[in-house]
Design a protein around this nucleic acid. Structure first.
Length: 642
DNA sequence: TTCCGTTGTCATGGC
DNA sequence: ACGCCATGACAACGG
């Protein structure tokens, strides 16, 4: 029904399942429009220029007032933060009740509950969702919202027009906002009870920290208590890498004040546009090195427990100290990545840095990927490939091809994550890549399957030079031998789908998947290559099978024809034999007849001069051979009766 | 070491 | 134009 559709939509937006019913007040009393009037600070609520995507469409289908996502997000945020049990359980009635007064509690636990009371919870946000949104969607004067005067239809009409004006925005932009919304809600969920954060899986905590990061970057979250973060940070031992990773966002907040920019923080502070899947702003050259580096700095599991993370960050910091964030993207020394690469490898058991360095020092090392052949890409591939060794963070993913549906999201949120602590990310753990990170966290289990018909371990994402066979053997002994080259590559690049999915997915689902998920160009390229190679591999197998079938059929045909030939030969021999017998019988009969014939003088008839001829009436005539040779044209009755 | 079969991959053309 | 499929050709690998 319509409510379930809206609920699914909100689920996709990242809101808690219960919050989906926040839309119910739409149809009840147009409460959103009136809620705008109740905004205590009179802050703008509308960012109508932002496309609202499917949510808007669903809302419009229902004929309810259009609610900008920013409002919905804020409302959801505060509904959750208020701890309303009814709302938390997704009761329509409760949501309807909240439409008039809102939740009334801020994420700060009440100390900054300025938006509370009777205010519209959606108004709690002091600004638009993010800077980009602010630019595209100028603040709508509060008076305009208030002037709606509870007339939901009027506001709906205005907002709808605004939306239609902004309808040109791309689907990707819409997805970005969805992810942002999702993260916003994650933030609220985590802020609601900070104590729970340590109990949550790392992936969830990571998502939370990223949400904070984004808020920090956007400067839109003014209600977040920095003091809380400082206390939280100070309560955690700095030498705990896990804690460092977990509270990376806290460190970031701290950095924002101290201006002590280290590598990690500098990365996290990079403009979002750099890492979002913006077809204009983003380039593979600028993105990939960044992602690689950041992934290792933000992932506590990828570093040895005894590794001096601070030292490492300082090392990288020296490289970037004089670089802007954009410069960083283009000029990060590849050697750094090599170092990081080896560091990440060092986390593996039986790691031999010499062997591995030899491995990657091998000239003519063919990645085997028809990816971007640029230097950066190559280094990335190597890096990722090596990293995949330690990457056991297979997260549960759905094997059905419709994994991107909202229902799947709902199911995946509560899904099982085998090793969340090992969910070390490469290119999704940066602050600008929440989409991939979040979606991967939610959706997927990176349990890459072995294709049944494909004997593996003969190809890897990088070549194994001949003299490194020993290393290879050792290498493979410690890892999953059953991963094919593409599976390795997919795992290394954090492709959130299995090779089987990529290859077997219908083209429509495949394209939908590519557009729905936040994938780097490298990932998209790899996915397409995997799909192409996978399909071609199957085609080649079919072709060879077909060719073999043809050969076998031809061989069968040859056998059959040979047998038939033999049979025909035997039949011919039998026929010849019968013919000879008949000839012999006829010959004997001739001689027998002529031996008994006598002419008029009683002399024997010479068979060489006469022949026997059978007439139509059955009588037998003796005809001279010269007459027979003349064509039987003139048969004389010169013969004698027997 | 050579030969041969198998397999994966790429390029190409047809649909 | 795009994607899929079939197929020849090639290389790598293993027996």
């Amino acid at each position: 029904d319509e409510n379930s559709v809206l609920r699914d939509e909100l689920l996709f937006l990242g809101g808690p399942a219960s919050s989906a019913y926040a839309l119910s007040p739409f149809s009840a009393s147009g409460g959103w429009g009136r809620a705008g009037q109740l905004h205590p600070k009179g802050q703008e609520l509308d960012a109508a220029a932002q496309p609202e995507g499917q949510l808007l469409r669903e809302v419009r289908v229902l004929g309810v007032p259009f609610i900008p996502r920013a409002r919905v997000d804020a409302w959801l945020v505060h509904s959750v933060a208020a701890g309303s049990a009814d709302e938390a359980h997704g009761l329509l009635g409760a949501a309807a009740a909240s439409s008039t007064g809102g939740a009334g509690a801020s994420v700060d636990g009440g100390s900054q509950a300025v938006q509370g009371g009777g205010g519209d919870p959606r108004a709690a946000r002091s600004g638009p969702l993010d800077a980009g949104e602010e630019e595209k969607a100028p603040a709508e004067p509060t008076a305009q919202v208030a002037d709606a005067g509870g007339c939901a239809s009027e506001e709906n009409e205005v907002l709808r027009e605004k939306h239609e004006a902004a309808d040109h925005s791309s689907q990707r932009e819409e997805n970005e906002e969805r992810v942002t919304s999702q993260k916003e809600n994650s933030l609220q969920q985590n802020n609601d009870d900070e104590n729970k954060i340590a109990e949550k899986p790392d992936w969830e905590a990571e998502k939370t920290t990223e949400s904070r990061n984004e808020r920090h970057l956007n400067g839109a979250d003014t209600s977040f208590s920095l003091e809380d973060l400082f206390q939280l940070l100070s309560s955690q031992p700095e030498n705990s890498l896990e804690d460092i990773g977990r509270y990376s966002s806290s460190r970031q907040y701290h950095q924002a004040i101290s201006q002590d920019v280290n590598l990690h923080e500098a990365i996290l502070l990079c403009p979002n546009s750099t890492f979002r899947r913006d077809p204009i702003a983003r380039t593979p050259q600028s993105q990939e090195p960044f992602l690689q580096l950041n992934s290792h700095t933000t992932n506590p599991e990828q570093t040895l427990p005894g590794t001096n993370l601070t030292g490492f960050l300082s090392l990288a910091d020296n490289h970037m100290r004089n670089l802007t964030s954009q410069d960083l993207l283009y000029h990060l020394d590849v050697n750094i990545f090599d170092e990081i690469n080896l560091m990440s490898l060092a986390t593996e058991d039986n790691f031999d840095p010499i062997d591995v360095s030899q491995l990657f020092d091998e000239p003519d090392s063919d990645s085997g990927l028809s990816l971007d052949s640029s230097h950066n890409s190559t280094s990335v591939i190597k890096f990722n490939s090596s990293h995949s060794v330690c990457d056991e963070g297979a997260i549960g993913y759905r094997t059905d091809h419709d994994s991107s549906s909202h229902h799947d999201l709902e199911g995946a949120v509560g899904g099982y994550y085998p090793e969340p602590s090992k969910f070390c990310h490469l290119d999704q753990s940066d602050s600008g890549f929440h989409g991939d990170l979040t979606f991967q966290h939610i959706f997927h289990n990176h349990t890459y399957h072995l294709q049944p018909s494909a004997p593996e371990s003969t190809s890897e994402p990088f070549s194994w030079p001949g003299k490194s066979q020993k290393i290879r053997s050792r290498y493979l002994e410690d890892t999953d031998r059953n991963l094919s080259r593409d599976e390795w590559s997919a795992k290394a690049l954090r492709i959130p789908f299995s090779v089987d999915e990529i290859v077997g997915m219908p083209v429509d689902s495949f394209n939908s998947m590519l557009s729905r998920y936040y994938l780097t160009d490298l990932q998209v390229s790899l996915i397409r290559d995997i799909r192409r190679r996978g399909k071609n591999k199957v085609a080649a197998q079919n072709c060879r099978k077909h060719k073999l079938d043809i050969i076998l059929n031809l061989e069968d045909d040859v056998c059959n024809l040979q047998a038939k030939k033999e049979t025909l030969k035997r039949e011919q021999a039998q026929c010849n034999k019968a013919i000879n017998i008949m000839k012999q019988k006829l010959h004997d009969l001739y001689h027998d007849i002529f031996s008994r014939l006598r002419d008029d003088q009683g002399r024997p008839v010479n068979p060489n001069h006469y022949a026997l001829q059978c007439t139509r009436d059955g009588s037998i005539l003796i005809v001279p051979k010269e007459l027979v040779a003349s064509g039987h044209k003139k048969v004389t009755q010169k013969g004698k009766r027997k």
